[in-house]
Write a protein that binds this DNA or RNA. Structure first.
Lengths: 173, 173
DNA sequence: CGATATTGGTTGTCATGACAACCAATGCGC
DNA sequence: GCGCATTGGTTGTCATGACAACCAATATCG
């Protein structure tokens, strides 16, 4: 009987606010990135993951998994990024079915260009609102939630490194 | 110089995980609600807010603000919900420009029907992963973030009550 | 009052994502 | 090695959201 019981007051508050945050976060990220470098947050994420991959290269399937995208979605986005010369695709020598995606120097340059504004936006809208203890708590809480939402850790591990590394890498040329 | 500085390790972890959560949460919510009652999470939210409004009625503009929607978006969604007889629109007597939206008995019934599965999903995917202290921390952290992302409190206040009230109301007929 | 600006909503057009169908290459059973 | 299932990707079609243009009603100001 407890599992479908209405939420307690504290639970309802936390849940409603978490939903509000996940509603507003993408809007904020897309707005800043579209304004600064004409990239959606998802496109930025794809490039970030690639930048942090060995050889700046990844298979389409793996890339889709790391970015929580379906393969068709990634395929469309890759085509657009390829037209912008930010990314290139080439067949995998080992498995002729597979396609490798690699970020181009232009793509890396755009990431560098985007980094300062992106970091500033994240700071002013999110991180600066929290004290160090809360940052730790947030990391722990989101880790627990991800263990449920993403048991295989497709996003958590790799994407975490990716976002971090790309930002740091682009901030240090 | 600190404001565009790369994130610290703790910050990067917390941020990346938060992004991952907001990427996965909508997917989870949409999947459950579409499966159970053929409603997107946004449509569910609209109905929830209405159910918690006085007279089960709200002006389109106010409803859009409460659900973080643009007016055109809400207009389209309201038309779909109206076709399903879950919602009805009628001109506001006081201001002939304005349109009021009201949830129908059918709409309330769907909310009731959806509640158990929705609550169970939220519990098993999110709340059950946290101990009571973490729930409190999450509420506090998201409150701080919302103060930045949504300074006017358009979502936080009302939506919070709405989601809670509608679930509790439908769970107690 | 009458012209103009503003507010409240709706309806276009266009970009983007989901889902299904499809093709190519590989693996596997016998 | 040949037939079939599976994997890896791409390309359709369709639903949904953003943005702009538009119309109706109200408020404002001379």
């Amino acid at each position: 009987m407890t599992s479908t019981q209405p939420f307690s007051s504290a639970e309802a508050t936390a849940w409603a606010r978490l939903v509000a945050v996940s509603e507003l976060l993408p809007t904020m990220l897309d707005a800043q990135l579209l304004r600064d470098v004409e990239l959606t947050h998802f496109e930025y994420l794809v490039l970030s993951v690639l930048a942090a991959s060995p050889e700046q290269t990844s298979r389409m399937t793996r890339l889709a998994s790391q970015t929580n995208a379906t393969l068709p979605r990634l395929s469309h986005v890759a085509r657009r990024l390829e037209q912008k010369r930010l990314l290139e695709r080439f067949p995998c020598p080992q498995d002729k079915r597979a396609t490798n995606a690699r970020i181009t120097p232009d793509g890396l340059a755009v990431l560098e260009q985007a980094a300062p504004g992106h970091v500033a936006t994240v700071r002013s809208n999110v991180l600066d609102a929290l004290d160090p203890a809360e940052v730790e708590q947030l990391a722990a809480i989101t880790a627990s939630i991800l263990a449920r939402l993403d048991p295989e850790g497709r996003l958590s591990a790799t994407q975490c490194d990716a976002a971090t590394t790309s930002v740091e890498a682009s901030a240090r040329p």
